[in-house]
Design a protein around this nucleic acid. Structure first.
Length: 263
DNA sequence: ATGGTCGACTCTCGA
């Protein structure tokens, strides 16, 4: 039996957040696997040496200015794939989904499109993206196996997951349509392992820069998730929000969320 | 409590 920590962190520019990532990966709570979203970093500029000096491997798939995903890990992954590989990948898909295999465990890191507004083409892309995630799971994974779907999913699963949901019924991360789209993925049989361990209200992973003192007042959103297959969920022993990263200098608007597994 | 900031990049867009 060994303890494995897996974290997800929307960094909102990896380069701007190197001091925070350094602190996270060199500290006591350092994860074994760290999934990044919004690296905003082209592959040719990726700071691979930074991770290697901290004892981590890193795989990445980015683009200029927007999006970008990466997976840092103490162990070398057996396989890495960017995009869905479903025959309809466009450039930004490859900067939004990155999958890694470590032995019999699989990690799927996604930066789900935000969607802009419910009447935007971006929102249609968001719903289609989630439908493709479901199809991918059915195609490449099994509920008996150990698979973690993590990342910035840009969906508030329930009214507990945001402050004043009643004011946000038309929001692209809150509306019934997007909750149904998330549910159509998780209904495959996935378990929210964060909620399994943290059932209480007030647990968030994002605080808007534009809301005055949002973090101090805990006016937040739970957008960053850990969904596990039953085959992995039975090994999950803890999950928590890493609030320290949001309290540092020049923080991302998100912070990391960590799941702990005994395998 | 998405007007109000932040980051990337040419100054405006995306979140």
């Amino acid at each position: 039996m060994r303890k494995i920590k897996i974290s997800t962190f929307n960094v909102n520019s990896l380069k701007a957040r190197l001091p925070i990532v350094h602190s996270f990966l060199s500290g006591g709570g350092a994860p074994d696997i760290l999934c990044f979203q919004e690296t905003k970093c082209q592959d040719e500029d990726f700071p691979l040496d930074f991770f290697e000096s901290l004892g981590y491997r890193c795989s990445y798939s980015g683009m200029k200015s927007y999006n970008g995903v990466a997976i840092a890990s103490r162990e070398r992954p057996d396989r890495i794939k960017a995009g869905f590989g479903d025959g309809s990948d466009i450039a930004q898909d490859r900067a939004r989904i990155l999958r890694a295999s470590f032995g019999d465990m699989d990690v799927v890191c996604t930066y789900v499109p935000q969607g802009k507004s419910v009447d935007s083409p971006d929102f249609a892309y968001k719903k289609q993206f989630l439908a493709r995630v479901r199809a991918l799971f059915e195609r490449d994974y099994s509920l008996q196996g150990k698979m973690l779907w993590t990342g910035d999913l840009n969906v508030i699963p329930t009214d507990m997951d945001v402050v004043h949901p009643e004011n946000k019924r038309d929001h692209v991360c809150v509306c019934d349509g997007i909750r149904a789209a998330l549910e159509s993925v998780t209904s495959w049989g996935l378990v929210d392992v964060f909620r399994k361990h943290r059932p209480q209200a007030g647990e968030f992973s994002f605080w808007d820069y534009r809301v005055k003192n949002a973090f101090a007042r805990n006016i937040g959103w739970r957008l960053d998730h850990l969904f596990a297959t039953p085959g992995l969920e039975r090994h999950s022993v803890d999950a928590y929000v890493v609030r320290e990263l949001r309290a540092m200098e020049r923080p991302s608007d998100h912070t990391a969320v960590t799941g702990v597994f005994e395998i």
